Every structure is written in C-alpha cells, then in structure tokens.
Amino acid sequence: MRIAAVSDIHGNLPALEAVAADIARRGVDRVVNLGDSLSGPLLARDTARFLMAQDWLQLAGNHERQILYPHQRTASDVHAHAQLGDAELAWLATLQPSLRLNPEVLLCHGTPRSDHEYFLETVEPGGVRLATAAEIEARMAGAEAALIVCGHTHVPRAVRTAAGCLIVNPGSVGLQAYDDDHLHYHVMQNGSTDARYAIVERSAQGWSAALLAVPYDWQAMATLAARNGRPDWAHAIATGYAKPSRQ
C-alpha cells in the first residue's frame, strides 16, 4: 500500500497543484489530506473547489474549525471565510479532525486527542524543541496503530516509537514558515520555498516514509499575500523562513 499525505495547504493553490501533479506521476493507492487547507490571505475558495473535486480522504484541521466558528477566527481565518460560499462551508462542516484509514493506520491533524497539539515537537517558554519519547507516547493517547500520519506543525518529520509505530508529518504544502503565540511564542520554519508532502508505503518489513519537496512558482502567492496585507506570509512563502513578530 502506498499513500500520499498532504497537509497545511493554507489556500496556496499553485503549491497544491504542483504537489498533485507530482503525486500523479509517482502512483499511489490513496491520497489523504490532513487539514488546514484554506486559512490565510491566498486562494481559499479556489483551493476548496479543487479539493472538493478530488476523491481524496480529507480531514479538518484546527483552522477548519476556526473558520466555521466566528469567535474562534484569527485574521487568516477571517480572510478565508470571506471567500467561501455556502457549498464550501457545508463541505468544511463534514470533515473530521481524525479517523482510521484501516485498523493499522490512524490519520489526525494534530494528535489523536487534539487538533491543536504538536505531536513531534514541544513548545516551551524559550521556543520549540523536539518532543521526548515520553511526550510522544502521551500524545498518542493510547492509540494502537502501526502508522500515524499527522500535520499541523508544517515541519516534515518521521519518528518511529520504541513500540514500532511510525509517526509521519508530511510538512506543509503551502506555508513553509510561521510564528505563533499558542502556549508560548515560537517560530516554525523549513528554510526552503518548496511545497512539502510525503509518501508512506507498507512492505513486508513494515511502514516506511519518503518526505518530498516539490518546487513551484511561489512568486505570485508571495505577491498576493503582500497585497492582502500579510507581509509575514509573503516573507515565509518567498524564503521558507519566518519573519518574527517578536525580537
């Protein structure tokens, strides 16, 4: 079984189209989208319509929840919501934050217990660090799986637990850096403009993962973000680095 996993598109349709084309040429059995698909100052409506036309298995991220509930919206969610019509909002409302693909594969946006929790990283007052084995185990919340695929952090990683579960984050299709105040101020960044996704594959030896980087024409999206009043997004899209709001 070969599964392509995408996540954190954030309305960046050109990046999504480049990833979809790369997936098509590689050949997979299933495509899964782990959420945070639309939020941001880019192309929420067009991205939603592209995704609605696919036969992919799709999840809700924390930003899908926030788009649907006015009191939870950030500026990025407000911008996306303003582009969406009844059909797109109804589609968002059908999506779940986690589900089982089959008995051995669990999909989630953040962790099995939360759509807003980092799985493989830990946020502390001084920033962000790699999660310990004990922290990862706690965040699994007792889930039994040979493979867990998650998103949310925008950082591509693959970790195998002591019990043999492979946890894979494909990274972000559409936004390669950001800063955030959730829990404590921190920065997440990849240092590259490439769109990210992963292919996970089961063989006789178990599950393995390939973390992939796909180039695309990012200039138009950086220009659009700047035009829509988000120089932080423009910088992240154009460089792969966050422009910190705190020094």
Rank of each mutant, 00 (worst) to 15 (best):
E104R: 05
Q83W: 01
A53C: 09
V78H: 08
R49P: 10
D115L: 01
L120K: 03
T122M: 10
D46C: 12
L43F: 04
R129D: 04
Q54K: 07
R139I: 08
T111C: 03
R139E: 05
Q66V: 06
Y69M: 15
W91T: 02
W91G: 01
A48S: 09
S114F: 00
D55G: 11
A134T: 15
C108A: 09
T47K: 04
V123G: 10
A53R: 11
A60G: 00
E64H: 06
T74P: 05
H79I: 06
V105N: 09
P97G: 00
G126N: 11
A82C: 01
F50C: 14
E135M: 03
A138I: 10
A133V: 13
P103D: 09
E64A: 13
C108W: 03
F50L: 13
A141S: 15
H116F: 14
V123M: 15
E121S: 14
I136C: 01
L59K: 02
D77T: 01
W56L: 08
E144A: 12
R45N: 00
R139Y: 02
A145H: 11
Q66F: 15
G85S: 05
R73L: 07
E121K: 10
V128D: 08
E137F: 02
V78C: 10
L89Q: 02
F50K: 10
V78S: 15
M52H: 03
E64P: 14
L92I: 00
D46L: 10
H109S: 14
L84A: 04
R139K: 15
D55W: 14
T94M: 00
L51I: 08
L42P: 04
P103T: 05
G126C: 01
A138V: 02
L51Q: 04
G85W: 06
R45D: 10
L92D: 04
A133E: 13
G127P: 12
D86I: 08
M52L: 08
Q72A: 15
A44C: 07
R45P: 05
V105Q: 04
L101M: 07
D86Q: 13
S76E: 13
P103M: 00
A143Y: 03
I136E: 12
T132E: 04
Q83T: 07
F50P: 09
T47Q: 02
P41V: 02
A138G: 07
H81S: 09
A145M: 05
L101H: 07
A133L: 11
Q58W: 05
N102H: 08
L95Q: 06
A143N: 01
V105K: 14
P70W: 08
D115E: 02
T111L: 02
Q58S: 09
T94P: 01
R49E: 12
R73I: 05
E121N: 10
I136V: 05
Q66G: 07
A53Y: 06
V78Y: 06
D55K: 13
Q66K: 10
L107E: 00
